[in-house]
Design a protein around this nucleic acid. Structure first.
Lengths: 232, 232
DNA sequence: CAAAAATTATGATATAAATCATATTTTTTC
DNA sequence: GAAAAAATATGATTTATATCATAATTTTTG
């Protein structure tokens, strides 16, 4: 029933690829270019750290990044972002330009660091741009709410199945992919312990739902996995 | 440590009171007034239903509302909103003007139903207004992420303590308040079962942290409760 | 390339919280 | 204002998942 209403939103790990820059005029684009720096991050490096002052909005040109919140007790991966996404939009909020989460490079990344004042200036000057930013924030909010809801409703099997499908469909865009994530990270993505992830993955493997060869993960039975995601 | 950084964000049930309308000119305000209807909802009525087409953005003039997501398996209260809040901002997203959640009146409510096209028009025409909408969305997103994170980190005692403090501080704004929520609703707010809520509330009562007389709930030891919220 | 460190794996045990069952109290309804 | 329904309460039992322990791989590092 839920699926009939929002079939596109079954995956809770979504990505809102940024289309806002298309709305800028040539002149505005020039202004943007003048107020950004391109930085390359190596695999394993931190793009931004939760709690630090955000002087930039980040645009991910290429690479793969995880966005996560952390404290002494543990951490939660909020999302995994492929190229084309913006990182740190919430720092736009007036009077609180602080990163609310950290970002970590799974792969080598090329990032455009856009000066936040310039970004804000463009929001004020170009209403179509502002509108696209609103779209992005809405999509982000919806996605987070759906994921939050799913976490409270599904138990571990469902959450893991859901996450595997999302990774395949939304992030790597094929059913077989080199799996960059450790079991520990999959745990942070699904809200359980590393041991539990390992156990459930073995179960999925034994049941013929997935195959694992070294770092390669292959989804063998997406329908069954989807069923587990829906009803688990 | 976390607390030192964001002491204002300890409560995961926050409210972003809408300040966007202050940014409108007299003429824009007139346009707004012409394109809204004021509707009174009685306690217990539904203001909007998840999945339905959103032709309006709602502004809550007075009353108290819960925002929740639901499916066959259960429901999750995303937030509780007092007067001054906007409901349904995510429907602003182009090409998907559907309510992603339902809203229910805890008390009699007065609501301004603002035509969504007019609202979008104002975003395009008035950049200060657009900027405030962005602020609201950012605050919503941050709040949702923090709450989501808290849910994955804290266990039931912590989540319940947190929710009680939030209700007192953010929603009713005093330590003693007439408790509109049933135990079932408190369960939907904290992500546990009704029985568990009842058990934990009794525990809190026995430990002298709260008092309950009929529908009145009184917080007796906020420091201890905060401690449970932080480390539970 | 050997040593150290990290990751993956599996089993045994503990535990938080759900589920089930039943009773009491409060609220709603006719 | 009596009957029905809903909400609150408490106990017994089950279960999903965490925790703890230990071993086998794989990866990293000097």
């Amino acid at each position: 029933m839920k699926k009939e209403m929002h079939p596109h939103n079954t995956c809770t790990l979504g990505m809102a690829v940024a289309s806002c820059f298309e709305k800028l005029s040539d002149e505005e684009m020039r202004l943007l270019e003048e107020n950004l720096v391109v930085v390359n991050y190596k695999k394993g490096e931190i793009l931004c750290k939760q709690g630090t002052l955000a002087s930039h909005i980040m645009y991910l040109c290429c690479g793969l990044v995880k966005i996560y919140m952390e404290n002494d007790a543990g951490s939660l991966i909020l999302k995994v972002l492929p190229a084309g996404n913006i990182i740190g939009l919430t720092a736009l909020m007036d009077g609180a330009n602080v990163f609310r989460y950290s970002a970590y490079a799974y792969q080598d990344c090329k990032v455009r660091l856009i000066d936040i004042r310039t970004f804000k200036h463009l929001i004020i000057k170009n209403s179509a741009f502002a509108n696209e930013v609103i779209n992005l924030l809405c999509e982000n909010l919806i996605q987070t709410q759906i994921r939050f809801f799913a976490f409270t409703q599904k138990q571990s099997y469902g959450r893991l199945a859901d996450t595997l499908i999302c990774l395949a469909c939304n992030i790597f865009k094929k059913d077989e992919f080199e799996f960059q994530l450790t079991r520990k990270e999959l745990a942070e993505l699904t809200g359980m312990t590393t041991e539990s992830v390992i156990r459930l993955l073995s179960k999925f493997k034994n049941d013929g739902l997935i195959e694992m060869e070294g770092k390669i993960l292959r989804i063998k039975n997406k329908e069954k996995l989807q069923q587990i995601s829906d009803f688990g």
